[in-house]
Design a protein around this nucleic acid. Sequence first.
DNA 1: GCAGTTTGTTAGCCGCCTGTACTAACCGGG
DNA 2: CCCGGTTAGTACAGGCGGCTAACAAACTGC
Lengths: 381, 381
Amino acid sequence: MGTLRRDRVPARVRSGEKVLPEQARVHNRELLLRMLYREGPHSRADLARRTGLTRVSVSDVVSDLLADDLVVEVGTRAGTRPGKPAMMLEFNEHAYQAVAVDLSHSTLYRGAVLDLGGSVVARQQVEIEGSTGADALTKVVGLVGALREQATAPLLGIGIGTPGIVDLGGVVLSAPNLGWKDLNLRSVLTEQFGCPVVVSNDANATALAERSYGESAADTLLVRVGVGVGAGLLLGGTPVLGSRFAAGEIGHVVVDTGSERACVCGKLGCLETWLSTRRIQEDLSEARTDAEHTRVLAAAGEALGSVLAPIVAALNVSEIVLSGPHRVLEGPLAAAAMETIRQRALTEVHGDIVLRLSELGDDIVLRGATAMVMSQQLGIA
Amino acid sequence: MGTLRRDRVPARVRSGEKVLPEQARVHNRELLLRMLYREGPHSRADLARRTGLTRVSVSDVVSDLLADDLVVEVGTRAGTRPGKPAMMLEFNEHAYQAVAVDLSHSTLYRGAVLDLGGSVVARQQVEIEGSTGADALTKVVGLVGALREQATAPLLGIGIGTPGIVDLGGVVLSAPNLGWKDLNLRSVLTEQFGCPVVVSNDANATALAERSYGESAADTLLVRVGVGVGAGLLLGGTPVLGSRFAAGEIGHVVVDTGSERACVCGKLGCLETWLSTRRIQEDLSEARTDAEHTRVLAAAGEALGSVLAPIVAALNVSEIVLSGPHRVLEGPLAAAAMETIRQRALTEVHGDIVLRLSELGDDIVLRGATAMVMSQQLGIA
DNA sequence: GCAGTTTGTTAGCCGCCTGTACTAACCGGG
DNA sequence: CCCGGTTAGTACAGGCGGCTAACAAACTGC
């Protein structure tokens, strides 16, 4: 009670390693917890039926979860049926909290304390004011420290969503905007605060947020439009990182729709030259008529569609989610992207594809960072 | 001995299901077997050191593997060291065989019996002669039956590599060339022959063959050029199937390199209009000079590269393998594809990408089908 | 009130891995 | 030639985890 007895819980199975019977327990514990988290209250007997475990085993695991306060009994099942009334169990969203930080904005670092339901308990932010490298790190550490003080429940962990390339060990291999290179952010924060830390790319965090709090399918491609353009990819519910942890870095893929525009990276015609919010704003400010306005957005959508089409075909993803400023993305841009994908990639074998806008708002990275912590610590989300 | 005691071995863990201690055993058994298969002979003590299991547990698992004849003792370790000489264990490639069938050719069905090392023990083929649907199925069943007679060791299973869309349960959802739609090929063959059957897309089988018998990295994109164009994708060593099992179907992605060519599918400018062997042959036959010859191949390569570029960037794969007729693929085509990818996708964050041709020759699908059987039955490959 | 149903717990068993302790078999030095 | 040092592989008891069987508790319906 109070703090999670992680010391008594063996680590999850990593591929290529031995498996002990204890890890079966971890797996089953996570299975039950996930079921309660995703699908709402169940009784012990419900869980046993759904998982195939015996009621005995379920009871045993549940007693651990109750001791950790991750699950609470919420009274007997409503409605009248024969037999002993079932005691319903519910995932306890309020027992623990996470500190989440979003470094993907251009002018400030946003942070918050969230409970396990994704609700914001406290908020804080710090202006960047041009700081990079060590200064930026100091500001992030300060932000996390201040947030930690505001938590009203034991901390499950710290989650950071950052632009750039992040490896599995929480090392930021490269984040030009922040001036970081090979920075072991996880170990810095772990040493400072002594609790679990998860660091991930902001687009991957966003994709995880859509999966946990939105309605995303298990195979989802999320495209994040902001200062740059990045993608987060979920296959079978798990993030794809890539061999160099650079999966989703599609901003500098060259689009060939005739005209070519210069990019900051030195190439001509990168996707970002059509789709970054800054370039779109510039183009829109030059548009005089509604038709021109629409044409600018449609051109951006077409650029996006032409990059996504081969990806969608190759992976056969069923859902594409766009995250970014709604007033830019919705309407002509999304429609043009979808239409381009349809024309360029869709065959009957790929089935229907849904392209939609994220509904999770500005806190999406914060909620994704929380989901990352939950995923790592509890095996859910 | 003789036949694999599958009845005594519990199934592997499927995601979303409970895990029993017995499945820890399955995992560890596969772990040891994989180590022997991939990395050659080890002693029990070597295996214990490498896996972290105790020598006691290793001995126990190994005694099972010896009983199943999957592993053999091959004498004490060469060389002189202090201590009791180690008894070396080796994966037994000859204890079992697989029947493999390749349905991806246009004029014949190729089949073979292979041992677990991927060596062909017997070969057989049957002319298609325009048969489709039920006729095609009859021919395939006949081919498998004839091959099974020629096996000189107990059969581990039957593996089929077929063009088209195949789901996880071995149902061919769609294979236009064969005239199959929603055909449960696995259940047909299982009922007929009473042994494990694995059915998979030919490109996926090819990718698995490259991984098992070639030098492929764990994240690999394999492109198969033949009558059509298909891709097989391996992420973290496991095949990506997609939400509708249509992953890798990139043949009808539209390429926009200016000119547009009509495709059998009705669209203009599909990748296949540049890259199918037939179209390339036609174009080459019209080429008079060496320069024109090179230009045809380079155009095909450029088309391929422009489709692969977004995929490579999005997934950050480190290796691309081309499988198909060497004399067409090597040289200008491969060079143009690589150069296009470099220009259109590569940034420093993606790291180096290798593009190479498969070296496994005509039997690649047969060996991939064998690898599929080994993967399913033994958890290796 | 009693049979039937469902829930959750207790008791005993088997599988799997561990730690410790043992035997077997080799090396080298005195 | 024997004896300590070293490595390989094998018993044996113990803990953990899940299973079956049996039971107590609590409800419905007749």
